[in-house]
Design a binder for these strands. Structure first.
Length: 633
DNA sequence: GGCGACACAAATGT
DNA sequence: CACATTTGTGTCGC
């Protein structure tokens, strides 16, 4: 307790591996180390808000033709899956999906005014002002060490059975960013009525707008009638070919960049490698359209863990007999010994249950073995169990979790998960004191002016030092003070459950207010602090419960330098604009902007492309496929 | 040691 | 409640 931002209440070993924080919308973000604990693939614990993005870096200005004034833009990106905050680092897994979502806004203009307007941009390398056809965002990744661009791949829900493609450029109109919860709920919807429920939050249907707009205003020059309000980059992975470690075995550092741009007719690529947005513009040959960057936000350094078994809970094969293989799994202090009946000698997975607070649950529970070969309970008990503590599978934990969730004075993340979603939202809230809000800040800066170097998490005002790699300054990285990273964040605070089961937090119109002091959009290593403040409004009928949650993040920002990367060997993606409702493909063209649409390769529907990339790196996208998979069913 | 491919399985969606 | 889907990850074999 004592006012910690963590809301876990459990004391058992598993729970200590999970740090849970509440999000502003009532959901929680539970960070855990996949080297230590395995959580079921579809667990809601796999959804979590990732690192905040840096303040925007501005590139080209856009002028409102009517007023002649520069238009202000803001982008609101958020990571909703795939990155855990572990011992002062943001950790992702090469094999796992991550999600980045973003909307953009024009703070000084209403949507109507925006749609009614027309806009011009004058790219750095151009002498004339060019008419903006539409605004759009794109997602790119870079390796900090060498500034190289990193290919990203997007899958459909079908994963290997479906196509792979580059995260497309998404044409967008200004809109609020749906909260984390809505992104969760919309992630795998196929049901039509459910789709409709989300439609308004994610799409603007130009053809359904009664209002009439002047000829030539921007709404008419968007490429499709169905225009996205939110870019949802779901099921994204780093290209499988990336190396996540340097030759020295130290981890590389990556950043994700969300770029707002405008698309104009013709090829206006800026090939000046000194351009501050070199490699951020994109020419789409098919549409003969160029994406001109307006502004960008990026994540702090990210660590990506590869496929090495060392990045997963250790397995130790201890015995193999003719009929069965005994495998001991050590996960933290738990040791599970189980026989193996699976074909091919495969080991059954064990999923951690976050907690077990029933006193009578001391009996260890081993999950069923392979599908049709469950052990009898008696057999199970006769197995040599090393750990007297209960070790529940996810499913069994749930089954046994018959806890009155309402009126409970405190609950855990697991409790929250067990609640119906709507209740879960309302379940939160709590008694976190002001000083319990998570606060993030960066380590003392150094002279590395290119990227946001590190983040330190100091929720308890403890001095956590940054465990950054201390090494090769060859890339010019100055690392923060290294120090003990042993300290673990406490997970002892609790959250109280509101007695009102019907309390609901509105899913819509979550507002975010970012206050930046000493913003730094300039070039070299400038630093700023900003407070990120968010509110999740409660739906009207329940506002009196004042369940609005507030999170404050103190962030020390370093503006990314816009110096060039000068790596010619990095493929530049040039997807063409997507049509949200048809099946045109966005192709990722490597240095040769020649080829366009590619058919699926013969194998398993994977799109292949020519050029200098390996098949797995060639990214194509279908807009249709970019939509929730339900559009395809 | 890494990667593509395939497999298993657990929670979610219908 | 049953079946289908989605996605973390175990594993084989190159």
């Amino acid at each position: 307790m004592e006012g910690r931002p963590s809301i876990s209440t459990e004391n058992n070993e598993k729970s200590q591996e999970i740090q849970t924080f509440q999000n502003e919308d009532g959901t929680v973000s539970s960070y855990f180390d996949k080297r230590k604990v395995r959580i079921a693939p579809r667990s809601t614990l796999q959804f979590k808000i990732g690192p905040s993005f840096t303040p925007k870096v501005e590139y080209n200005a856009v002028k409102d033709v009517r007023t002649g004034k520069k238009v202000e833009f803001e982008i609101k990106p958020r990571i909703d899956r795939g990155f855990d905050f572990i011992e002062n680092e943001w950790i992702g897994y090469k094999r796992n999906y991550f999600t980045v979502v973003s909307a953009f806004d024009t703070p000084n203009m209403t949507l109507e005014q925006f749609l009614q307007g027309s806009y011009e941009v004058r790219p750095e390398n151009s002498h004339s002002r060019l008419k903006v056809r539409y605004f759009a965002v794109k997602l790119v990744a870079k390796c900090i060490e060498d500034q190289s661009q990193i290919n990203l791949v997007q899958h459909t829900a079908k994963r290997d059975k479906g196509p792979q493609f580059a995260p497309p450029i998404h044409p967008l109109v200004p809109a609020p960013l749906p909260n984390h919860q809505m992104i969760r709920e919309a992630s795998n919807v196929r049901n039509e009525s459910k789709m409709k429920k989300f439609d308004h939050d994610f799409f603007l249907h130009r053809d359904r707008i009664l209002q009439d707009f002047d000829d030539g205003c921007i709404i008419y020059t968007y490429p499709n009638d169905t225009i996205k309000k939110v870019a949802r980059y779901e099921r994204i992975q780093f290209a499988s070919s990336i190396t996540v470690k340097k030759p020295t075995q130290q981890s590389k550092h990556f950043v994700l960049q969300l770029v707002l741009g405008c698309c104009i007719d013709g090829n206006h690529m800026n090939r000046d490698s000194n351009s501050e947005y070199y490699n951020l513009d994109t020419y789409d040959q098919d549409a003969d359209t160029t994406f001109i960057p307006i502004l960008m936000k990026q994540t702090p350094a990210l660590i990506i863990r590869g496929r090495s078994p060392s990045n997963y809970p250790q397995q130790i094969k201890t015995l193999s007999t003719k009929e069965e293989t005994i495998i001991a799994e050590t996960s933290s202090s738990n040791i599970i010994v189980e026989p193996k009946f699976c074909k091919r000698g495969r080991k059954k997975k064990e999923y951690a249950e976050e907690e077990d607070d029933d006193d009578d649950d001391d009996e260890p529970i081993i999950s069923e073995r392979c599908n049709n070969k469950r052990e009898k309970k008696s057999d199970r008990n006769s197995k040599p169990i090393e750990n007297p503590e209960a070790h529940l599978t996810y499913i069994e934990g749930v089954k046994r979790k018959i806890v009155p969730l309402v009126l409970q004075s405190s609950l855990t993340a697991r409790d929250l998960e067990l609640l119906p979603k709507t209740s879960m939202l309302s379940a939160l809230h709590n008694s976190l004191e002001a000083d319990t809000t998570p606060s993030f800040h960066l380590s003392p800066l150094n002279d590395y002016d290119v990227e946001l170097l590190s983040i330190q998490y100091d929720p308890f005002n403890l001095e956590n030092h940054h465990p950054y790699d201390q090494q090769p300054l060859t890339e010019g990285i100055l690392l923060g003070p290294l120090e003990s990273r042993k300290r673990k964040l406490s997970n002892k605070s609790s959250i109280s459950l509101l007695s009102e089961t019907k309390l609901k937090i509105s899913k819509k119109n979550s507002t975010m207010v970012a206050t930046t002091t000493a913003a730094s959009n300039s070039s070299a290593s400038s630093v700023s602090f900003s407070t990120f403040h968010s509110f999740a409004p409660i739906s009207r009928e329940y506002q009196h419960h004042s369940a609005t949650v507030t999170n404050n993040f103190l962030i020390k920002h370093i503006s990314p330098s816009q110096q060039a990367q000068g790596n010619n060997d990095i493929p530049r993606s040039t997807p063409h604009v997507n049509n949200p409702m048809d099946i045109s493909f966005c192709l990722n063209i490597e240095e040769s902007p020649t080829s366009r649409q590619r058919p699926y390769s013969s194998k398993r529907g994977i799109v292949t492309a020519g050029g200098n990339s390996k098949p797995s790196e060639l990214l194509n996208s279908s807009d249709l496929l970019d939509e929730p998979s339900f559009f395809r069913h």
